[in-house]
């Protein structure tokens, strides 16, 4: 069967990897408002500790807003940002994944920032967050420049990499919360 028509395959794939929620396509703040509810619903199943579901939700929101602000892949008609974001059950908690195209010229800065965050302990992250809050956002930030620090504080660990594709550099993020 042609892979792109493999509907059952899609179902099996999502079930096997225990993906609770996945969105891939144009993402807007309006859409984020709408999908916040089902995402939260998925996370409040009664078995998950509230502190854990709040951390997952926090990482999800920050990463969704990263896609909205920084994805360089846009819809032709409205210029909305395109990306993929997913939440799955993993290990003893949850895995938050995201993929989007980024501006090649920002890649090195992003990579350096994330490497710094990945080796920082909780205490250092807390200090970095406070410092960033006092200093204000860096010039190329549309938010407060705090998003990735916030995410690093909420995850147990995270991984990232860049994949060179035909359309540019894809940023791939994985964060584990438990």
């Amino acid at each position: 069967m042609e892979r792109r028509k493999d509907t059952l395959g899609l179902h099996t794939f999502m079930q096997d990897r225990k993906t609770l929620f996945c969105y891939s396509g144009p993402l807007t703040e309006d859409l984020l408002t709408t999908i916040s509810n089902p995402v939260r619903h998925q996370l409040t199943d009664g078995e998950t500790q509230e502190t854990v579901s709040k951390r997952v939700f926090g990482v999800f929101i920050e990463q969704a807003q990263n896609i909205i602000r920084y994805s360089t892949q846009k819809t032709k008609s409205t210029g909305d940002s395109i990306g993929t974001i997913a939440i799955s059950v993993a290990e003893d908690g949850f895995l938050i994944e995201a993929v989007n195209l980024i501006d090649e010229t920002k890649k090195d800065v992003l990579e350096a920032t994330l490497v710094e965050l990945s080796v920082a302990d909780q205490k250092a992250l807390r200090q970095m967050y406070k410092q960033r809050l006092r200093d204000g956002p860096p010039n190329d930030s549309e938010g407060a420049g705090l998003g990735f620090i916030e995410m690093a504080r909420r995850v147990k660990r995270f991984e990232f990499n860049f994949v060179e594709g035909q359309e540019g550099a894809l940023f791939v993020y994985r964060g584990w919360v438990s």
């Binding site: 926090g58 929101i61 920050e62 807003q65 938010g143 705090l146 998003g147 916030e150």
Partner: peptide
């Protein structure tokens, strides 16, 4: 809950 952009507002 507040997101990182809102932290700046609180500040």
């Amino acid at each position: 809950y507040f997101n990182s952009s809102s932290a700046k507002f609180l500040f």
